Computed example of a mutant assay.
Amino acid sequence: MSSAQRKDDHVRLAMEQQHAHSGRNQFDEVSFVHHALAGIDRPQVSLATEFAGISWPVPLYINAMTGGSAMTGRINRDLAVAARESGVAIASGSMHAYFKDPSCADTFRVLREENPHGFVMANVNATASVDNARRAVDLLQADALQIHLNTAQETPMPEGDRSFASWPAQIERIAAGVGVPVIVKEVGNGLSRQTLLALPALGVAAGDVSGRGGTDFARIENGRREHADYAYLHDWGQSTAACLLDAQDVALPVLASGGVRHPLDVARALALGARAVGSSGGFLRTLLDDGVEALIAKIGSWLDQLAALQTMLGARTPADLMRCDVLVSGELRAFCADRGIDTRHLAQRSTSIEALNELTGSTR
């Protein structure tokens, strides 16, 4: 099977998952404690965020999806237009197809051509050579490089990798050699605390936990197998909410993606420590079902509603959401108990009138 056909299959199978989703995930086990006097005025709210020396005007980004075929090139063009019009950052899909076949370069380059002044991230796997990583960055004039980790995808993939021991050393070589910040991300199975703690020594600037709850690439690759005999890997890994809780007090800046369905999930992820939040499958579904103008409107609506939620919660900035009280319940709470994570302090981050007044700026 050609690389282009595989990329098209990924889009088709991902959209089948989107249309089949039940709608629930572990973000539903995170809730804000409502403080009726915590609200502030909307003009006080900023959506700007910073991490690892990077400044974004909003804490939302279009995460890695696709590229490598004529169809996915058209998708990337529309995604780039949506990023340009809404002001969000955007990441390319894996550029391995470009390394194998340079004739598909335009299907990735369009991300920069249609979005000349935006924040664009290139994307490679952990086996890429330093030279190829540089080629990816140069092709997109990328502001940062994502390196994706995907052992649970490679394992059922008929043509997938089976050698993973070299990944840490190669990540270190790439990070030292590309000249832009490196963000290590999963593809939907989550980054554990142990993984996040290992990344700074490799020269990594940030980690995108990209947990379970969105597109399931192990399921996609199993669907490409003749006998679909890896079904037991469906839903492998930790949810995005679980990863963020596992990352409490980790010094490495953390981004969140995977199963982000609406602005409340964005606020939940920010409250659990994410510096910014990405979406892929949900945005792609809107684009393919309703067109690029609908996607632009959706992103704009998400940003407007996120600002409204910050106003209600008394959070002047996305970072201030980390000072709001949140409750953790259900299986997510059980995960925290087993991992030795005390969630009680999350529910008591503003336990006095003085703390609330500091958050809202009140002098009463």
Score class of each variant (00 low, 15 high):
residue 270 L to G: 05
residue 233 L to G: 04
residue 279 S to V: 03
residue 229 D to P: 05
residue 244 L to Q: 02
residue 267 A to I: 05
residue 262 H to Y: 10
residue 254 V to E: 04
residue 233 L to C: 14
residue 280 S to G: 14
residue 252 L to P: 01
residue 260 V to S: 00
residue 248 Q to A: 12
residue 224 R to Q: 14
residue 226 E to T: 14
residue 259 G to L: 07
residue 276 A to M: 10
residue 242 A to W: 02
residue 275 R to S: 13
residue 234 H to R: 10
residue 252 L to Y: 02
residue 230 Y to P: 00
residue 226 E to V: 14
residue 226 E to Y: 13
residue 263 P to I: 05
residue 257 S to D: 13
residue 234 H to C: 02
residue 233 L to T: 11
residue 244 L to S: 06
residue 277 V to K: 09
residue 275 R to N: 12
residue 234 H to I: 01
residue 225 R to P: 07
residue 246 D to I: 11
residue 257 S to T: 14
residue 276 A to V: 06
residue 259 G to D: 09
residue 285 R to D: 15
residue 228 A to M: 11
residue 228 A to Y: 02
residue 266 V to R: 00
residue 256 A to W: 03
residue 272 L to G: 10
residue 280 S to R: 00
residue 278 G to R: 01
residue 228 A to S: 15
residue 240 T to R: 07
residue 261 R to F: 11
residue 255 L to Y: 06
residue 266 V to C: 07
residue 250 V to W: 03
residue 284 L to R: 00
residue 234 H to L: 02
residue 258 G to V: 03
residue 258 G to E: 00
residue 261 R to Q: 09
residue 262 H to M: 03
residue 259 G to A: 04
residue 228 A to Q: 15
residue 261 R to H: 12
residue 237 G to E: 02
residue 266 V to L: 12
residue 278 G to C: 06
residue 266 V to F: 05
residue 240 T to P: 01
residue 256 A to N: 07
residue 283 F to I: 06
residue 249 D to C: 12
residue 245 L to T: 10
residue 232 Y to E: 13
residue 281 G to N: 00
residue 266 V to E: 02
residue 256 A to Q: 03
residue 239 S to K: 00
residue 266 V to T: 14
residue 235 D to S: 14
residue 278 G to Q: 05
residue 246 D to E: 14
residue 274 A to N: 09
residue 270 L to R: 03
residue 248 Q to N: 11
residue 267 A to N: 08
residue 231 A to K: 14
residue 271 A to F: 08
residue 263 P to H: 02
residue 243 C to I: 10
residue 228 A to R: 15
residue 269 A to W: 02
residue 239 S to L: 08
residue 258 G to N: 01
residue 265 D to E: 07
residue 245 L to N: 00
residue 268 R to L: 06
residue 240 T to N: 04
residue 251 A to D: 14
residue 251 A to R: 13
residue 250 V to I: 13
residue 239 S to Q: 10
residue 253 P to N: 13
residue 248 Q to C: 10
residue 247 A to G: 15
residue 285 R to I: 03
residue 268 R to F: 04
residue 233 L to I: 07
